[in-house]
Amino acid sequence: MIHIAYTHWPYIAASYGCALLATLWLGIGLALRLHRATTRLALLERPDARRKPTV
């Protein structure tokens, strides 16, 4: 049985909205950061592999 909140619903909406926004901000920020870091590392490692193995 679904309860649609009718008492105090603005406060409930604000709370869940803030939680959602924070999660999206942290999650999307992390995804972008990971993507940027891995492509940067891949770019740096690729030219090295073509030269003689120094490490």
């Binding site: 049985m1 679904i2 309860h3 649609i4 909140a5 009718y6 008492t7 105090h8 619903w9 406060y11 409930i12 709370s15 869940y16 939680a19």
Partner: peptide, 21 residues
């Protein structure tokens, strides 16, 4: 929590904030 949990007898639906807080 948001749609299927019961409302509290004294707090009403505001108790759903508890599941976040």
């Amino acid at each position: 929590a948001l749609l299927f949990s019961p409302a509290d007898w004294q707090q009403g639906d505001a108790v759903r904030i508890m599941y976040l807080h």
